[in-house]
Computed example of a mutant assay.
Amino acid sequence: MWIYEKKLQYPVRVSTCNPKLAKFLVEQYGGADGELAAALRYLNQRYTIPEKVMGLLTDIGTEEFAHLEMIATMIYKLTKDATPEQLKEAGLGDHYVGHDSALYYTNASGVPFTTSYITAKGDPIADLYEDIAAEEKARATYQWIIDMSDDVDLNDSLRFLREREIVHSQRFREAVEILKEERDRKKIF
């Protein structure tokens, strides 16, 4: 069961209208290493993982939905005052024609989200290594977006998200060690 607070996990502020930056952020909205893929991956994997770490996948998976909400807010704020011409110049003309200002799950290149982004092997350690890789790829993407941005306010929120990816990676690494010890002790999986 979840309890939803009507506030973002971390405040999102944007200095100016910037559709080009919004286009980059779409990668974290509907891309292979974005927040939606991570949330669905972890909440799916939790069903075939030992109980010792099941709660971790649930906790991080639900937090990823909070991150998705932050990304959606950033994109909205970066584009809400944009003209169709500004959207076109930023490479969002196709999106505008198909969706106006509505968010739509794609990557930054406009490729629609696909469930092939969601991996689950059924081997707990293999899945956790995939999760570590996903978190590290998300961390790198956030850093690259920060590198492309000159919006000090937005970068504050992006740094928060980048740091959460690092924490998630560390927690998944700890879970791998817990399961390896259990596997070696009990000779399972």
Rank of each mutant, 00 (worst) to 15 (best):
L78D: 01
E177H: 11
F24M: 12
A175F: 03
L57A: 06
V167F: 06
T106Y: 02
Y76G: 11
L43W: 03
I146G: 05
R46Y: 04
T141V: 05
S157M: 04
L21T: 09
I178L: 13
S101F: 12
L154N: 02
E64C: 07
A102E: 10
V12S: 01
E165R: 04
Y42Q: 06
L154D: 03
Y104C: 09
D127W: 11
I125T: 10
D123Y: 15
E35V: 00
Y105C: 08
L158Y: 05
D147H: 10
E163T: 10
S101V: 09
K52N: 13
V111T: 12
G61N: 03
H95E: 08
T79K: 10
S109I: 09
E64K: 10
G34N: 04
L68A: 13
Q86F: 00
L103E: 05
P19W: 08
V26F: 15
T119P: 00
M74P: 03
V152F: 11
I125Y: 02
D33P: 02
E5D: 07
L78N: 02
K187E: 14
A175Y: 04
Y47D: 11
I71A: 14
K7T: 07
L57N: 01
K52R: 15
G98T: 06
Q45Y: 01
F172S: 00
E182Y: 07
K7E: 09
P112W: 04
C17L: 13
F172N: 01
C17S: 15
Q28K: 07
F160I: 11
D100I: 10
N107T: 04
K186L: 15
T79E: 01
M1T: 09
Q143W: 06
P11E: 11
R164N: 13
G30K: 14
H67M: 05
I75W: 08
H67S: 02
G30L: 15
D151H: 11
L103Q: 06
D150S: 12
Q45W: 00
M54V: 09
N155L: 05
V111H: 09
Y10T: 14
A134R: 03
D156I: 09
R46E: 07
H67F: 02
K23T: 07
L25G: 01
I75Q: 03
P84W: 07
G34I: 05
A22D: 00
M54P: 00
L25K: 03
Y129E: 15
N107A: 02
A140T: 08
T106H: 01
K52T: 15
T48R: 12
R41P: 05
A72R: 13
Y29C: 14
H95R: 06
L87Y: 04
Y76L: 15
L21V: 11
R46T: 01
K52G: 10
E181W: 04
F65V: 03
S149T: 13
L56K: 06
H95F: 09
Y129C: 12
D81W: 09
F189P: 06
Y104S: 07
R13P: 04
I178F: 07
A32M: 14
K121C: 13
R173W: 06
R139M: 05
A134T: 02
